[in-house]
């Protein structure tokens, strides 16, 4: 139901993003999806990747401010309104979404989100029979 996500604190200065990506390349980690939440001075770089736990350890050893967290990953039906239907289920259950992004994996749309109410999200997803991704799907 949840997958590991790397969160990296990066400064808004040239070279920092490249430094992180170069380190992932050296560690032979493939990025599956990413997004950056940015402010004027720094960015929060969120990454879904292969072997996330090894990636976390190796980035940490390289001195990078990286955290490992779990985010929900739901499969979307490939038609207009697919995301709307899923989000409606969550909002009807009163689940607050801290942030959300989406990507394609094997032709399927994947919706990633984080909520502070993990228990309720798990119950709702299970009760509604929503399709989801697991860590093993990341390869």
């Amino acid at each position: 139901m949840t997958i590991p996500q790397l969160t990296i604190f990066i400064e808004n200065s040239s070279g920092t993003l490249s430094m992180v990506l170069e380190q992932m390349k050296r560690s032979n980690i493939q990025m599956i999806a990413c997004t950056i939440a940015d402010t004027a001075e720094y960015g929060i770089f969120r990454i879904i990747c292969t072997e996330p736990r090894r990636a976390f350890e190796e980035l940490k050893d390289a001195g990078i401010a990286v955290a490992l967290s779990n985010v929900f990953a739901l499969e979307l039906d490939n038609h207009p309104g697919g995301a709307a239907d899923v989000v409606k289920v969550l909002s009807n259950a009163g689940i607050d979404i801290a942030y959300m992004y989406a990507f394609l994996l094997g032709g399927k749309g994947i919706l990633v989100f984080r909520t502070d109410d993990e228990m309720k999200a798990r119950e709702t997803i299970a009760a509604d029979g929503l399709q989801y991704l697991s860590e093993k799907d990341l390869g």
Binding site: T7, F9, A37, D38, T39, Y42, I44, R46, K60, G63, I64, A65, V66, A67, L68, S69, N70, A98, Y99, R114
Partner: peptide
């Protein structure tokens, strides 16, 4: 400087860092 070991999952939004 953020201390590396204090950058955890609870700090993964700009709001938390702010």
């Amino acid at each position: 400087e953020l201390r590396q070991e204090y950058f955890t999952a609870t700090l993964d939004t700009p709001a938390a860092i702010e």
